[in-house]
Simulated assay, not measured.
Amino acid sequence: MLVLGIESSCDETGIALYDGENGLLAHRLYSQVELHALYGGVVPELASRDHIRRIIPLIQDTLKAAERQISDLSGIAYTAGPGLIGALLTGASVARSLAFSLNIPAVGVHHMEGHLLAPMLEENKPQFPFICLLVSGGHSMIIRVDGIGRYRLLGDTLDDAAGEAFDKTAKLLDLGYPGGPEVSKLALQGNSERYKFPRPMVDRPGLDMSFSGLKTYTLNTWKQAQKENDATLQTKADICRAFEMAVADTLAIKCKRALEQEGLNRLVVSGGVSANREIREKLQNLMKKRRGEAFFPRLEFCTDNGAMIAYAGAQRLMAGEEQGLNFSATPRWSLEELPPIDF
């Protein structure tokens, strides 16, 4: 089955072709970072308009790279939510229109299921069941995964997600947009011994997370440095290092707790924040100590991309799922609402 995947949930247009027998054939991605940098964040209207401009040329380019024709497609997968409603509807309407014109099935994919299953695109695939840490700009979740569509939410973020806290910290320190990568880049120059930031909610039972307090602690530390006439680039680097270490430690503590609670020893880490070097190392070390396994998507599939949507959609299409002509986009959507699939 040859599936076209379309991702347009926020500020990146991703297109991919996935073959049920031969795997990923080609993928293309256009990022809107430069478009939104002027505003310091994503402007939904501009995002939707840019998806409209980019989506058809990217589909054509992906088909050409894979040496396939549009008539070769046997199914289309598109991100149906969660995300920005205008951006979602752009991808959904193109996908549904193409499917109708080609008389092939189309299926709406949960954006976070795409991230969760992204490591399945690698040679070393995780086996079910496993614990998944989903960390992105809008989500920080710990999930027990017993199969595709068999998800149980164990822990969620109560306020700012980890990625959101990274971006807000960058804004507080005037590091530019997008903030997360800038914080991580500057943290490499930081002194890990200078500041000790709190590890939020690790002294409480349960697996829920909170990063808003850590962001406030960062702000207060920076303000104190300014009062002491120590608002230097090195001080910023030291703050970034302390912040990043606090987030990584917190996630590792919560993941260890989840693995012990569920009696599992396989950990999948995905979402945009899973590209962070400190977080990867911390969680890899955790699993080495436990003699377990840690799985990550390759760096290019950590952030939003069409490959993860093509893969997730292909699994559901091959199981017989498809949407009718009355498609919809869902800005808020729980993973636990998804139907399980069996092969």
Rank of each mutant, 00 (worst) to 15 (best):
L175G: 10
A258N: 02
Y311R: 00
P205W: 07
G41Q: 13
Y217D: 04
D342L: 12
Q127P: 04
G320E: 06
L233K: 13
E293T: 10
G81D: 01
G313K: 01
V273N: 04
R298W: 05
Q32D: 04
E193S: 14
L299G: 04
L219D: 07
V109T: 05
G180F: 09
L186T: 03
D72N: 05
K236W: 08
A80M: 14
Y78R: 08
A170E: 02
S101E: 04
D72R: 01
M1K: 12
Q284V: 07
L84S: 01
L84F: 03
N103E: 15
T13M: 01
N285C: 09
A99T: 06
T90K: 07
C10H: 03
N22R: 15
C255M: 13
G263I: 10
K185L: 13
I143S: 01
H111W: 11
R28F: 05
S212W: 09
A248L: 13
L158R: 15
Y78P: 04
Y39S: 13
A170W: 01
V3T: 15
R280K: 15
F128R: 01
R194V: 12
K289A: 14
P129V: 07
L267G: 00
I253M: 14
A314K: 01
A246D: 04
V42N: 03
D249F: 07
G190Q: 06
L286H: 09
E7V: 09
F128M: 04
I253W: 09
S8H: 02
T221C: 14
A99C: 10
K227L: 14
T250D: 05
M201Y: 13
Y177M: 12
M201A: 08
Y18H: 00
G86N: 02
Q69F: 08
T218Q: 10
K227P: 02
L175H: 10
T216Y: 11
A294S: 15
R316L: 02
W222L: 13
Q69S: 15
E321G: 05
S140N: 08
P44M: 02
R280T: 11
G176T: 10
A294W: 08
E21R: 13
H111Y: 10
F197D: 07
E21F: 08
Y217F: 14
L116A: 09
D50Y: 06
Q315A: 14
F343Q: 06
A258M: 08
M120A: 09
D160L: 11
P44F: 00
Q127F: 08
Q284T: 12
S334Y: 00
I70P: 06
F197A: 11
R194C: 09
Y78N: 05
G320R: 04
A319K: 10
I59R: 04
Q189I: 05
L25H: 04
V3I: 15
P339A: 12
V183G: 00
A65G: 07
S8T: 15
E34K: 12
F243Q: 04
V247S: 01
E293Y: 05
R199H: 12
V273H: 04
S71A: 14
N305G: 06
E193R: 13
A95Q: 03
D304W: 00
G137I: 07
P105F: 10
G306Y: 03
T250E: 05
G190V: 07
K236P: 06
D159M: 11
Q226M: 14
G86F: 01
N220V: 11
E262T: 13
T62S: 08
E21Q: 14
P105G: 09
G292H: 02
Q261R: 13
A26P: 05
R332C: 06
S101H: 06
P57K: 10
A118V: 06
T169V: 15
I59C: 08
Y78A: 08
V33S: 11
